[in-house]
Deep mutational scan, measured.
Amino acid sequence: VFVDDHLLEKVLELNAKGEKRLIKTWSRRSTIVPEMVGHTIAVYNGKQHVPVYITENMVGHKLGEFAP
């Protein structure tokens, strides 16, 4: 499973602090992992960042699938 390192670091850091804030990313190719559930990730679609709230059903899919 591929997840960009910088994105995973941000998610794990927020989980350690117990925070839930918006994470901006250009990494549409990253796979959604269970650690991301409950976070809102702003995924770049080529024009703007689209906020995507991550749920359990999204695990295993790519971030780009949810930012048309």
Rank of each mutant, 00 (worst) to 15 (best):
E35C: 11
L63M: 06
R28N: 05
H49D: 03
A16K: 14
V33R: 04
H61T: 10
H6V: 15
P68I: 08
V43Q: 01
V43E: 00
Y44N: 04
I23P: 01
V43L: 07
L8T: 02
K17L: 12
E9K: 15
A67G: 07
E9I: 09
T40P: 01
R21S: 13
R21T: 12
P51S: 07
M58F: 09
L14I: 03
T55A: 11
I23W: 01
D4V: 02
E35K: 04
L14R: 01
F2P: 04
K47T: 14
S30R: 02
Y44C: 07
K24F: 15
H61N: 11
V33Q: 05
L63H: 01
V3W: 05
E19S: 06
E19M: 08
P51I: 11
K62P: 08
V33L: 13
F66H: 08
I41L: 06
E13A: 10
G18D: 07
L7H: 00
L63G: 01
L14K: 01
I54N: 00
G46W: 11
G46F: 09
L12R: 15
L22R: 04
V11C: 05
I54Y: 00
A67S: 14
K24N: 07
Y53W: 08
T31S: 11
K17D: 05
H61W: 12
E65Q: 11
E56P: 12
G64L: 09
L14N: 04
M36W: 01
K24T: 10
G64Q: 11
K24I: 13
V52A: 06
T55N: 08
T55Q: 14
A42E: 07
E56Q: 12
L12C: 08
I32E: 00
V43N: 00
L7I: 04
L63V: 04
K62I: 12
S30L: 03
P51Y: 04
E56H: 12
P34R: 13
L8W: 11
V43D: 00
G64P: 00
E56I: 11
K10Y: 11
G46V: 05
N57W: 12
I32T: 06
H39L: 03
N57T: 11
N45R: 08
K17M: 08
G60F: 15
N45V: 05
V11Y: 01
D5C: 15
W26C: 15
R29C: 15
E9C: 15
K10C: 13
K20S: 04
